[in-house]
């Protein structure tokens, strides 16, 4: 890998403050990720994967250590600047899709553009383009409740992509989907990573999902336990 890393993390730690005192969720994480990488994060439940993703996505702040995104130490940014990063640099995909139930798919996909200050006509045009790209071009006027879970996750990906982010963060994006639909979604991520050079970091519990990535990071008990290339035999047999 060459060029500047998109993510540089050193000595990162996170304690949750609870009534029973601080709970360490992450300790001393060191990680460097370059643009264009496809990273899968695995680990047992409670090992700190979601905590880590929230830190990467600037939804939460670390208790210790440093996190640089795109060469900027996020600690130096104010709330509005963090919002700008979430809006334009990062695209988030959640396990539970997190679409707005009240509005149709076009408006769901276009939502980040409202906060980017893009005009209505342009928003709708780009949202339609994004829906076409994830294969749901005909469904623009539908509500999230009128389509399947796999389709909702595609809409969520379209929304994550609409403001042309450099980094996609996906926390168990296939956690609620059957294996066939999961593989379709993973195909989409692979395509984005390969064809558009978007950096993808995703959390999964399943080895076959992780095998779509080319780098695997394993968390155990809040520590980074393994970091290396993905072996591709399992993916080959399953696909």
């Amino acid at each position: 890998m060459d060029g500047e890393p998109i993510i540089r993390i050193s000595g990162l730690g996170k304690n949750y403050l609870t009534a029973a005192g601080p709970v360490p969720a992450l300790e001393d994480i060191n990680l460097v990720i370059y643009p264009g990488e496809f990273v899968a994060i695995m680990g047992p439940s409670g090992s700190g994967k979601s905590t880590f993703m929230n830190l990467l996505g600037c939804l939460d702040v670390p208790s210790s250590g440093a996190y640089s995104l795109n060469g900027t130490n996020v600690r130096t940014l104010d709330k509005d600047q963090l919002a700008r990063l979430r809006n334009g640099v990062i695209g988030f995909v959640f396990q539970g899709y997190n679409l707005l139930a009240r509005v149709n798919l076009i408006d769901n996909v276009a939502l980040p553009l409202i906060y980017a200050g893009v005009g209505k006509a342009e928003r709708n045009r780009r949202a339609q383009e994004m829906l076409d790209k994830v294969g749901l071009g005909k469904y623009g006027a539908s509500r999230p409740s009128q389509i399947s879970g796999g389709q909702q996750q595609r809409v969520a990906i379209a929304r994550a992509l609409i403001n042309r982010p450099r980094l996609i963060l996906a926390d168990e994006p296939t956690g609620n989907l059957d294996s066939r639909t999961s593989h379709e979604i993973m195909g989409l991520f692979t395509q984005l990573n390969r064809d558009e050079g978007i950096t993808v970091i995703l959390v999964t519990h399943e080895a076959d999902i992780a095998s779509f990535a080319n780098r695997l990071v394993r968390f155990i008990d809040g520590h980074l336990a393994h970091d290396g290339a993905v072996e591709h035999e399992s993916h080959g047999t399953l696909a």
Partner: peptide, 10 residues
């Protein structure tokens, strides 16, 4: 929460 996550400012 969703709005904030996709870039809404306060």
């Amino acid at each position: 929460g969703i709005r904030i996550a996709i870039g809404a400012r306060q």
